[in-house]
Design a protein around this nucleic acid. Sequence first.
RNA 1: UGGCUGAUGGUGUAACUGGCAACACGUCUGAUUUUGGUUCAGAAGAGUCCAGGUUCGAGCCCUGGUCGGCCAACCA
Length: 688
Amino acid sequence: MTEESASLNFIEQLVADDLAAGFPSEKLRFRFPPEPNGYLHIGHAASICLNFGLGEQHQAPVNLRFDDTNPAKEEQEYVDAIKRDIQWLGFQWANELYSSDYFQQLYDWALQLIKEGKAYVDEQSAEVMAAQKGTPTTPGVAGPHRDRTVQENLDLFERMKAGEFEQGSYVLRAKIDMASPNMLMRDPILYRIVKKAHHRTGTDWVIYPMYDWTHGESDYIEQISHSLCTLEFKPHRELYDWFLDQIIDPTLLRPRQREFARRNLSYTVMSKRKLLQLVESKTVTGWDDPRMPTISGLRRRGYTPESIRHFSDLSGISKRDSVTDVSLLEYCIREDLNKTATRVMAVLDPVKLVITNYPAGKTEILEAENNPEDPNSGTHELPFSGELYIEREDFKEEGGNKFFRLSLGNEVRLKSAYIIKGESVVKDTNGTILEIHCTADLDSKSGSGTEASTRKVKGTLHWVSIPHAIKAEVREYDRLFLEEAPDSHEDKNFMEFVNPDSLKVINEAYLEPFLKEASVGDKFQFQRLGYFTVDKDSTADKLVFNKTVGLRDSWAKQNPAPAPTPQASQPKPTNQGGGQDQGQRSALNEIQKIAKKYTNLSGDKLEAARTDIARLAEEVSYEELEPLFQTAAKKVGTRIGAMITLGVLLNKGQARNAEIEAFIAAGLADEDAQLVEEAKVVSSGLPK
RNA sequence: UGGCUGAUGGUGUAACUGGCAACACGUCUGAUUUUGGUUCAGAAGAGUCCAGGUUCGAGCCCUGGUCGGCCAACCA
């Protein structure tokens, strides 16, 4: 994406600043460092687009480095999936690297640390060490092995490496500062013993380096100029720098870590641990289930790389926690597919339509536009007959004048075909409609050029010719969670919010025969319904389609479905995940907020504001209010709010005192008419 | 009783060294339309968490608060 964005995000700005300060652009180098313990998700896309985007902007190399220091969790399958996803997004890495490539170097540096008295072997239990570490508010204390001799440390570490000790029995720790306010500096672990084969180094090693010891040094080895990571690593920066200080050659480039906020999406979860739980609990069918926010899931759902990159672009990069609304993602895929997807017709919930004046047994081939947005997209053949399926919800016996579809006595256009008029219905004993009978204006054929063919009718319906239709399975998806931020509730597990109806399977949908040759990944717009893509579960004799996203539907908005899905959520009760909402703001705080703009209001809004303040004032105590009496004279709104609140308190029996009298007096003497009025009300002691 | 960090319409981001708070999504009108899609025209919605200060002028600077996030894995 080479959008010459008017303003750079703060990371891009930082790189630009470095360049401006004299950093040589040929030394710019970035990296994307996933741990191969799960699939990439839409949150990772932010980091991928950031790093690779920076690489593209500055013609700088971007390495793909697998952070594979924990054989207990990492697997080759994930390595393969990650590479596939990055390439699919359209990025090319300069080098495919692995932290495990650096195990020997890391080991050598560890030896150096030991010799310099900066690392020691500890064999206490994890619990004991944790206890010695203290808490964020209390300093830690030294363990009994902290001052072992270099010789002893060397010997023990050597034996750890040789496999003499059991898994978990010994660790190597850096000797930094057990009293540091930063917990990470309290003698962090460098190496632990893990007796499990590594996906690349096999059984060569039984000691594995920890993240902190590995990451910065790997950046240094690769001469990464800007090491970008998410906010939760901010406290690690001090350690990152400490480790670098121990081994750095000042003639080489020193990597710098910078942090940005991770991206959350509404109505889903975004941590590999939680996604793994969805997979393992069989809540979804796998990492690439179309309901998953993984890159693989989105791809299978029908998203395009362009749409995801555009989404990343629009979402931006910042330093605050946020939850991006899925509607932005949906906008991005609609925008892309609108321009590129071939238009076809499919009926998902069929009802039979018979055209009584169309010759029995006759068939004709019509011409259907492939994409009205693209004049060069051409047309395809579309068979028509006297017996069709239309969507059940496209017919009502009595439509009313806001119903632009088929009803008795009314005309609609059959897309790319004829104008028809509803005549009668055939029902079963339960009243269910079995057939709709109608007549066609046989002169109105689409594109025929006749006067009748250009007549305007109020609606257009999609349809499929029964004798020509092919059957297919269609899978419709809804959001996976019912809550906007499912993992932000302290008292509830995110699994409690799983949407039980996130998948709806239509076993027999009817499609126009043009679709017969569609292959996996092909994308179509089923006219008036949405965008659909061919799923990999399709077989030679049965197509399976995934619904990517529906078309925008202003009709549905006016007609709330009988069982509404949690679509466009109106009220937002809580929003802890975003860190946006200020939680339960105090009543006084609320008053201040309203009062601040009080003088800008008039009419109904002014009345409403006054009422709100008076209502909120019921919950305010005098002790809370008094400080507001000091409000600067020019902040009239706040003083009016305080005055109204004071009036409520006085009516509730608050005794007058010197401060109150002074505040009222000041109000009466003010030049703002509204304030004077409120002050008069209060001073008279009568409620307004 | 700690350290780090953040706060701008419903949502996500902008606002170069202080200078009329902008863009996108979403929402609502209207027009066009053989998709209740697209496109086009327009509207509503924040005075920038609160208070004090500096300044001719503060979302940006200073002080003090409030509220949120992260930090005590032999995970990354």
